[in-house]
Design a protein around this nucleic acid. Sequence first.
RNA 1: GCUCGUGUGGCGGAACUGGCAGACGCAACGGACUUAAAAUCCGUCGAACUAAACAUUCGUGCCGGUUCGAGUCCGGCCACGAGCACCA
Length: 843
Amino acid sequence: MNYSTEIDRKWQKHWDEINIAKFDETRIDQKLYVLEMFSYPSGANLHVGHWYNYGLSDSWARMKKMQGYEVFQPMGFDAFGLPAENYAIDTGIHPKDSTESNITKMEEQLKSMGGLFNWDHELATCRPEYYRWNQYLFLQLFKQGLAYRKKAPVNWCPHCNTVLANEQVQADHTCERCGTIVTKKNLTQWFFKITDYAEELLEKLPDLDWPETTKKNQANWIGRSEGAEITFQAIQNDHDLIDENGEQLKLKTFTTRVDTLYGVVALVVAPESELCELLTTPEQAAEVKAYQAKTLLMSDIDRTSTVLEKTGVFTGSYAINPINNHKIPIWTSDYVIAGYGTGCVMVVPGHDERDFEFCTKFDLPIIPVIADPEDPENTELPYVKYGILVNSGDHTGKTSEEAMQEIVAELAMDNLAEEQINYRLRDWLVSRQRYWGTPIPIVYCDQCGVVPVPESDLPVELPYDVDFTPDGESPLSKHAGFMNTTCPNCGGPAKRDPDTLDTFVCSSWYQFRFVDNKNDQTMFDKTKVNKMCPVDHYIGGAEHTTMHLLYSRFITKALRDMGYLDFDEPFQALTHQGTILGADGRKMSKSIGNTISPDAYINKYGSDTLRLFLAFAFSYVDGGPWNDDTLIAITKYMGRIERFVAELIEQIEQKDQSLLGTWAADVNFDPWHSTDLTKAEKELNRVKNYTIKEVTRDADKFQFNTSIARLMELLNALQDYVKEENVKLDLVYQTVSDYLRLLAPFAPHFSEELWESLGHQNTSIFYEKWPEHDEKALITDTVEIAVQFNGQLKGRINIANDAKQPEVEEQLKAMPEFITWLGDKTVRKIIYVPGKIINVVAN
RNA sequence: GCUCGUGUGGCGGAACUGGCAGACGCAACGGACUUAAAAUCCGUCGAACUAAACAUUCGUGCCGGUUCGAGUCCGGCCACGAGCACCA
């Protein structure tokens, strides 16, 4: 046939005509929702990474379809976002225009890949039909108090000219998107209250069929920490401090080590916390102000540098330690973070490294209160492990574990302590000072304040004629027609919110919209989504662990609690594909010049060649370096299949012109049971059934490389068999028929073409049933096992497959080599593992 | 610093529950076919020792342990990668 892109196109057209990717609602009980993370419609052609992700998960989905599942595999576009806007700034081409044309181009490309995507359910997040419901989601969260506005020091990327969520700032304080060092700005922004779900987000992780590392990283990000909140009374000039409501000012501190409470020598508040102002005495005001100013100027990088020496200033106030009524000074220092816990920390230099450093620097006393149980006399400070309490009043002599319980219980009677759980996770900042995103459906009215846009007025359309030159201001704020509106409440003049939503909001619920993408009454139909979701298998890169994958889980839970759906998690199973590297083993990058464009390979070899190569040459979850040689090897493998099938057809037709048609028409064609099989035929049958078993098992767990290896073995076995005398063509035909079905998911166009040449007209191999193996065929008459002496391999023997241990022992002892192997040792025990090894223990 | 993951021939990678390490393929080498080449087909292919074969010994990052038996389990290192990191 000479496989090429011509063949690709022929079958793509055919699949289109027979609407093979259509979802049959009547078979919803067999539904299988397979989803690949949707992609950003960039101008360039599909790259190798797209192929690896979409091509091979499509193979998985195709196998599932043949196994009888009703597969739902939609495709769409994550179409809002910075690249289109930046492209517009460079070229003057409007984001809407470039994005829409990119979508058209990508649709074509995805079709040319041969993916079985359900285009009836396509969506693009930049279209009003979609972002209208994104705004609706925002309003529902707002109603629930899950979307709120606050002024806070937020991450600002000076290059992208926008704020970023915590999750979008990398560990080295650079922007996730552009790598620029992120700074802090004090701004009023919209947040989603993901912290309300911190506990459930953590708790439900073990039930997910996700990679363990991904779950660990999410757990790490959520950062649950158990401890207690201790209340200290603040005093100034020996009088209780009073807050603005005329109440005693109580300072709450979070600690995981209540057992060290007797060792507290000071409190430290974060310089940017409001407490700092309240606590500063007039005498200390100048010094504290200067320190606060200095802190604000420092970047997070400087501030969190571990080589940095501790700094700090005394506020002038004191606090009373509730456990022993000691009066301790209150300081401010930048090693305390305003956003975590209460922004106020008790300083225990004896048992915390940071506090130890701080107190050494400022000559504060160091009181040991925990002793090392191994060596209580010589406990080296700071001693940060659990131990035995010393210098701790009534609690002296107790273990840390005992003391923590007792101290909290004791102070709790006076409301001075309670058990507390803290999370590292912060609320999700969703405002962005950019143009190409979902407008926030809120107006600000001088009379009524913050007013949500009524749902009936949605969508708040993103205007087209906007000046989006980046200057740190939201582009929409410069568009008078957009900004000036009337208050839905009082009808007076009002302003719109000039910001747009983080694009991760779009992608946090798109998996539900896919199911019901044309609904113009609501986000999605609850009944439909409850039937179709959660997604059964989700496939995508590992870079979204603490962003998209966490946000989606949160939004799903929020939607559940608001009554929009009835399940807990969006993605039941998850697989991350690995990364394909350049041939040099480095990450593909335009600047290094080691990128591989799939197009040239496809034009030359056809799309299935690339797909098979990607399946065979890598372990799917690991990826690895590109290798032209292996790609050529795949073309040879495909050539062998092609020739084998062609020769088979020729031989069958030589024998009888009508035979092929007869066999093809017989759905239950199975010549294997009608005759006594020769040894060679039994062997072919064994390999065939083994292949069916293994290909199915391996492909099922995304281990495509070994699936292809087994298929190569079966081809070798077929070629061995046809060298025999008196070849039975019906057996070969049937084996090839199974072969093509097993190959079809990995080389869909190629297999269709061969399937057709085998006599199947006007149909599709994807309507065929996936082969099932016969366990009995795997059993051979004799089996070779290994002979070990004291676990060391000595030789091999053939035994009857049903031989029991005594017979095998007898057979072994009858061997001439047995005496040599045994030497002068005495047999103590013989271990026989059926079908595997026999091990003689001797000494 | 803490947490997690990975480490197997010249290369990509297999090895299911502790049971014959290196499947499958690439590269390499030898051969067949051919006037020749390409293509195709057949064979060899972890290391050491040996003239060679048989045999033997060693071999899954390193050291030790458990076990009749360890790539696989346990303890301790080393290297690389990822996540977190002044989170109290």
